[in-house]
């Protein structure tokens, strides 16, 4: 493997202390993103992928709390940083794009003023210089008549344009890592393609890495280099997109991929995974997938499987691989 990753999380644990109980949303997650690469964190709703992203950015709000683990960004441990130090990092070297741009744009402030505010906060430049940087950023995300758009209010823009504005804000500080949480879920498919290709282009120009949080295996296959599959608060499989799509090692990944319908082929009968994802207040003992797993063995109900390394950058959290893993490569998390 390469030297030190850009972002590294090790044994991250974030729980939500709700009235109905303790939700183990992130329960021992380890992942890394290297400079310039596109990594997906994929899973179904409620698996903890968004909470993982918020934990990496230290944006977890009560009742959620980061309890354990290490997050390192560019070699700096993030969890011990003060709130002020963290604010300087966010929106600077480490930027984030969310699903619903309207939640993160101030409806009463002109688009230009919002981008300028963000730039002045992070780059110690004059408002005039910031306006120039904002204009460049809008042009880079191919907003037509960017100078006019600077004076628009967010409601005057379409959903795709708002997402472009958010991307412009995110890249104005030339981040080394962009975390994008379902950035195109609310958009139509042709607009989604525009935005994803724009992200790829901007990343190439700036050399930024991407951590894409998504439920869509199509986006993972199309735009990412590596993928982490998440289920019930844990990473169950990781590998390059070719590894994971062509030789999925975890029964959950296999079932999900068989249930994924693409426009490229007609599936005569749908493969289904019985049941539904477990409650994260009282997750199943042993492997969290075992109640739904077609290949479950006796051991799966009682012992939680460790992460079995199965080659360079390839790992699965499943007892089926207990025999395959090279000796000494078992690394238990959580």
């Amino acid at each position: 493997m390469q030297a030190s990753p850009l972002l590294r999380a090790e044994g991250l644990v974030t729980h939500l202390f709700t009235d109905s109980g303790r939700v183990r949303a992130v329960d021992g997650v380890s992942l890394e993103v290297r400079a310039g690469e596109a990594v997906a964190l994929v899973g179904e709703s409620g698996c903890g992928k968004s909470m993982t992203a918020l934990s990496l950015m230290r944006l977890v709000r009560p009742p959620g709390r980061i309890l354990e683990g290490v997050v390192e960004f560019e070699g700096t441990p993030l969890l011990p940083l003060s709130d002020a130090e963290m604010r300087r990092l966010r929106g600077g070297r480490l930027a984030m794009i969310f699903q619903d741009p309207m939640t993160y744009l101030n409806p009463l402030m002109r688009v230009g003023a919002q981008i300028v505010e963000a730039i002045v906060l992070h780059q110690k430049v004059s408002a005039q210089a910031a306006r120039t940087i904002a204009l460049e950023a809008l042009e880079r995300v191919r907003i037509p008549a960017a100078a006019t758009v600077l004076d628009y209010f967010p409601h005057q823009l379409s959903g795709g344009m708002r997402q472009r504005v958010l991307i412009a804000m995110a890249i104005s500080s030339r981040p080394s890592l962009l975390i994008a949480d379902e950035p195109t879920t609310a958009l139509d498919v042709t607009v989604q393609a525009q935005i994803m290709q724009l992200l790829a282009e901007v990343r190439r120009a700036l050399g930024s890495a991407l951590l894409l949080i998504t439920h869509d295996f199509g986006l993972v296959a199309e735009y990412c280099d590596r993928v982490y599959v998440m289920y019930a608060g844990q990473i169950v499989e990781e590998g390059s997109v070719f590894d994971v799509f062509e030789r999925p090692r975890h029964p959950y990944t296999r079932a999900l991929l068989r249930s994924t319908l693409g426009p490229d082929k007609r599936v005569a009968s749908f493969t289904t995974i019985e049941g539904q994802p477990p409650s994260l207040i009282a997750p199943p003992r042993g492997c969290r997938f075992h109640p739904r797993c077609p290949e479950a063995m006796a051991r799966c109900a009682s012992e939680s499987p460790p992460r079995f390394g199965l080659g360079v950058g390839v790992a699965a959290r499943c007892w089926l691989h207990a025999g395959d893993a090279p000796a000494g490569r078992e690394v238990a998390h959580g």
């Binding site: 498919v189 042709t190 989604q192 393609a193 525009q194 994803m196 290709q197 869509d216 295996f217 199509g218 986006l219 993972v220 296959a221 199309e222 735009y223 997109v241 070719f242 799509f245 062509e246 991929l257 994924t260 693409g262 426009p263 490229d264």
Partner: peptide, 20 residues
């Protein structure tokens, strides 16, 4: 059709995309 993501990394990388 071309905008719809393909859940197959090889096919996805091989095809041409028309962006509207």
């Amino acid at each position: 059709m071309a905008s719809c993501p393909l859940p197959d990394p090889r096919l996805a990388r091989a095809r041409k995309t028309v962006t509207l």
